[in-house]
Nucleic acid binder design. Structure first.
Lengths: 145, 145
DNA sequence: TTGTAATTGAAAAATATTATCATTTAATAA
DNA sequence: TTATTAAATGATAATATTTTTCAATTACAA
């Protein structure tokens, strides 16, 4: 599943949110790059084309998009508070520590581990976080080691 | 491996850092709770017993301890910038979304996935992040659902 | 087209984090 | 044990980040 404006609009409206031009632009901006972006970076990009969109709106939009699963917040590599577009239904991320490029992957099943942990600890597991960090092919050549 | 003051002192000194009373207190504070703590929470606890230890020292100490692997930074459950003691060599975390209790687990091998991802994407993988979030046994009874 | 609740932008407030610097201190070697 | 020295500390200030507030605007359902 690729990024789709119609999907974004539908999901927003389904949850009682309006599909405003600002939200469209923010979503589009995050979807149109391969790396992950911080709120400040998103604001900067957005602001270039749309100087009337404020930083506060970016923050508010990020909160909503993340809550609805339309974007993902990344953590590995020290880059907390950084967002990437949410392409497929359930997936995990592989992040380049040099250029920030994000590659999605899916098809890895953690349910066995989840079950083991439930049994061993008594926890009722709700969610998980799985990310890999490393050097993408392009950066392996560039980076001095 | 449990928390040991001697180990903390040794590792700090091995890396050219001094083992100061402040660092001892911060490390001990993080080790003496089951949950994860934010810098502010750590400062608050530390400050009660040692009013002379400042917030800046707490921040500086957390950076060093994290870098040396003596404490772990947690991310799942919206609690970025939250720390827990680092018990065993390599392990992952299971976090209670209600009370913040952290349970370590190890013995789960991601190397097969790591290899698959390397092959598929060309990435040279450096590290990963794996955390589970859920309700611990005690909180399952308490929390209204 | 209209009514209304949601959204926005701007400014201010609140939080969180980092830099600076004079003073103190841990750890090494004499 | 003492002297030496580089590292660490605490206090303050500076910076960065995020949230609140509120009047004006706007999306969208009726």
């Amino acid at each position: 599943m690729r990024f789709s404006e119609k999907k974004t609009a539908t999901i927003l409206r389904q949850h009682g949110y309006k599909f405003t031009p600002q939200r469209r632009v923010v979503t589009q901006t995050i979807a149109s790059t391969q790396d992950h972006l911080t709120p400040a970076a998103i604001y900067e990009k957005v602001h270039q084309e749309h100087p009337n969109i404020g930083l506060v709106t970016v923050y508010r939009t990020l909160d909503i998009l993340a809550k609805l699963g339309l974007i993902c917040e990344l953590h590995a590599g020290g880059s907390c508070h950084s967002y990437t577009t949410s392409a497929s239904e359930h997936h995990h991320h592989l992040i380049c520590s040099n250029c920030g490029k994000v590659v999605d992957f899916s098809g890895y099943d953690l349910s066995e581990l989840k079950q083991r942990l439930s049994l061993e600890t008594g926890f009722e597991i709700e969610d998980h976080l799985l990310e890999f960090i490393g050097l993408c092919q392009a950066c392996q050549k560039e980076v001095i080691r």
